[in-house]
Every structure is written in structure tokens, then in C-alpha cells.
Amino acid sequence: MAVTDAGRLRKNRGAAPLQTLLWRWPWVRPALLLTPPLAWFVLVYLTSLVLLLITAFWTIDTFTTQIVQVWNLDNFRIILTEPAYRLIIGRTVGIAALVTVTDGLLAFPFAYYMAKVASRRTQTILFAAVLLPLWASYLARVYAWILILNHSGILNWSLQSIGLPPANIGYTNTAMWLVFSYIWLPFMIIPTYAALERVPDSLLEAAADLGARRWRAVLDIVVPLAIPGVVAGSIFTFSLTLGDYITPILVGGAGSTFIGNVVYIGAFEAL
């Protein structure tokens, strides 16, 4: 008994200085916690970005692909003045915006149904339906769309079997818009659903109680409260589309070049 007590005493005494320090200077603990990730962030992330920015002011000898370390603004001048780059930037941003709006319009009613209308069971099924495709390879899902949209694909087959002319949207910007909207839809549904779930049912009841019809209550109460989720989802869909270069290669046609494709090709010149 005496031994245990003595041991406990020693232990307490040994831990005391650090504990006291942490307690007296509360900033020490977060500082210790944040130092490794911050160091990583500054060293690896920021440094590489800065280096990348610096190389933007150099040129490359595209014949030998060596970087020539001469300061100049040619790269920026070309991007700003060359109509092809303006076209590509405009197309990329435009389609990203279109995809974001499409996903927002599709995701809201879906997420609303999931969060506010569906039973627990249906909710689980819908959740699985939204998340399950994310487990399949991105490439497999894009290739599936090629099978649907190409000339002898399911879409045209279906159209022709009901006597309609074929819709040749395979390898077009329309196809890219469709595929992007499909691929990123879960990234819009999930944050929107999360935001809607946090809106208490009693707010809808309160609105109805105060004389608002259902649509009015949704518009006045649910939509404003769901905006943070929709914004989060929009950041996902917009930036994911903006940075993508695989879908343009696979389902895009002539004139579907994205910023990402130019970067991808340029990377081999500049690396």
C-alpha cells in the first residue's frame, strides 16, 4: 500500500511542471497542436505555389523543353491577348457555372425530399443511392455515358425505337455538361441535405401556422436556411468542373478543350 502511494505521489510530481505550464499559458497547447500542420503548409504548399508563380515569369525553350530563366511577362501577355485562351477560359468557367446551376436545381428538391419528406427507411435508401456511385471509378462512370450518348448508344436507340430522329450529343459540350452534372451531383446533394436536415420541422410548422402555404414556407424559410449548404455544394461542383481535364478528353468533342487540358499539355512542355 505504501509503495503504491509513494509511486502515485512521484508520478503526480513528475507531471506537474508540464501540466502547470500548459495551464498557465493556454496558448502553448494550440501552438503545439498547430505547428506541424502549419510548417507543412508553409513549406510544401505555399513554397510550391510560389515557385510555380515564379516560373510563370520565365520562358521555356519548347524545342529542348528547358526552362530559360529570363524574367518576362510573355506568358501573361499570351494568356490575356490570345483569343484561343480567352475562349478556353470562357468555356471552362461557363460550363462550370452551368453545371453548378443545374446541380443546384436538381439537388434541392431531391435533398428536400430526403431531409423533410421521406421516411427513415426511404431516406437510407436514397442516401445509399446518392453515395453508392461515388464508390465506382470516375472513369467507369464517364465511359458509361459514352455508351449512352454515342451514335449507336442507348439514347439514340431509344429515340429511334419511338420514332424520333437521333440526337447526336455524343462528343459535344452538351455531353460534357450532362456528364459533369451527373458526376458532381452527389457533391451538391450531400451538403444541401445536411443544411436542410438542420432546419427544424417546427420552423415549417410555424410558417404554416402563421398562414404560409407550403411553397411559401419553403421559399421564405427553408431556402434561406439551406443557402450555406447550397453554397458549399456549389463550391464543390464549380471547382471540380473547373479543374477537370478527363471528361473533356473522354466525352468532349472538337472544341471542348478545358483549362485543365491546356495545363495538362503545357505541363509536359514546362516540367
Binding site: 499570351i78 490570345e82 483569343p83 484561343a84 485562351y85 475562349l87 478556353i88 472538337a254 472544341g255 478543350t257 491546356v262 499539355i265
Partner: peptide, 8 residues
């Protein structure tokens, strides 16, 4: 460079 402008 020209190829980028052709296919853009």
C-alpha cells in the same frame, strides 16, 4: 501554340 488555337 498554333495547335492550341486550332483545337480550342
Amino acid at each position: 501554340a498554333a495547335w492550341t488555337t486550332i483545337t480550342a
